[in-house]
Design a protein around this nucleic acid. Sequence first.
DNA 1: CGCGACCTCGCTATTTATGGGGAGTTTTAT
DNA 2: ATAAAACTCCCCATAAATAGCGAGGTCGCG
Lengths: 237, 237
Amino acid sequence: MTNRLEDLLSTLQAAATLEDLQAVLESLRDHYKVEHTVYHWVNSVGERYGAGTYSAEWVDRYLEKDYLRMDPVIFGCFQRFTPVSWKELDWSSKAAREMWQDALDHGLGNQGYTIPIRGPNGQFALFTLNASLSDEDWAQFIDDNARDLMILGHEFNKKALEFEQWGEDGSTPALSPRELASMSCLARGMSRAQAAAELNISEHTLRVYIESSRHKLGAMNTTHAVARALSAGIIII
Amino acid sequence: MTNRLEDLLSTLQAAATLEDLQAVLESLRDHYKVEHTVYHWVNSVGERYGAGTYSAEWVDRYLEKDYLRMDPVIFGCFQRFTPVSWKELDWSSKAAREMWQDALDHGLGNQGYTIPIRGPNGQFALFTLNASLSDEDWAQFIDDNARDLMILGHEFNKKALEFEQWGEDGSTPALSPRELASMSCLARGMSRAQAAAELNISEHTLRVYIESSRHKLGAMNTTHAVARALSAGIIII
DNA sequence: CGCGACCTCGCTATTTATGGGGAGTTTTAT
DNA sequence: ATAAAACTCCCCATAAATAGCGAGGTCGCG
């Protein structure tokens, strides 16, 4: 077993292009004898990268129907820490059930297992296996392979991140200490007056810091600046 | 090797109290023959829980000196996805170097390896090994054990979350879809007028969502609400 | 020594956000 | 079926943030 994992990981390490990653997913599918293997990287703005063995029709339909906004897999994984078998998710909403039926009609198997992978800057990716198996067989399969899959998912994500700068330019502008302190106060809910008092400076001086932070961060307003500072990890609430 | 990992994981699975977790960390330290093993956990509000084999003196000093706010390990891991060996971090600032010397004086080894672990609701934990080894030996050690450590770190975090004695209030209030969309627009820098246009609603309706979001999130103002939503991981920029 | 970056303070005017009222329909859940 | 929650709209007055003009001191770097 471990040998196979090592083989898969070496193939992954050797990947040099996005096409190689696609090929890795296909060999994973064949190795685990499942219907589909998928990796996709999600963010709310709509930028995304996906690779996997889903049919082009299903992918198109998924995007067309905007299933991203209702998919219990996305929603569920976003709110949990551990990998999840699809049947554990909440399919109670009507929209979700319709989507599920639609998926089955497009060649997806009845079982799924998705590993949420989180990184800095709100990076969030999903690594998914989809198969047609009985509940028992699927549970056994997961039990046997959960750890390997976690390693694979994380290594895959690491590799995917190497290729492109998903986190935009990657060069987070450096804020001065006072600017960081100002952003931090605002992020913790202080008004300008309170933050100025906290930092023992005049409110006007604080304003100068906020302004300069905004410009450095390329933000439209204070809220935006604080949001960017948080996302960039340069301040922590 | 794998057998040892399985042993460690069974011990971890059997843990029933926080004291057991502490004991697991100690046996991990002994097993890997390192100076220290540490797990610490940060939640969206900034409360922290830590367990590990550091001396009480060092923990006290760390808290007293507020090293949390400057520790390159914390900061570095917060901004990266992959585990990191301490020497790769940025120790250029004077405060960081002083802290490093202080740490050595308090019995820490010269090498460290920290795995950042992220979960829902902005959950963020660090799993750390600290040792006294040459750079080469340490690199070899990491090379040999990186995957096992990742599994261990994630399993440890999973176990720690099960207890949830310190994270009970971590239940982030659920925002409605429109509230989330409003927060998301604001986080991306839109003014209220722009966000209202984006969502095809009146500016007043948008205000209602912002207000209700603020109340649900316990925020003092819009910026605070957006910051909390981001930290909680319920929106992404 | 000058240059730039950082830190500090003040003024005025305009735009925007906030806080308090209310009121109706639709969707979801019990 | 009925209640709860979510979604949508409107007015008014005040508080706060933004944009523009300034000025002067400290510190490190080449």
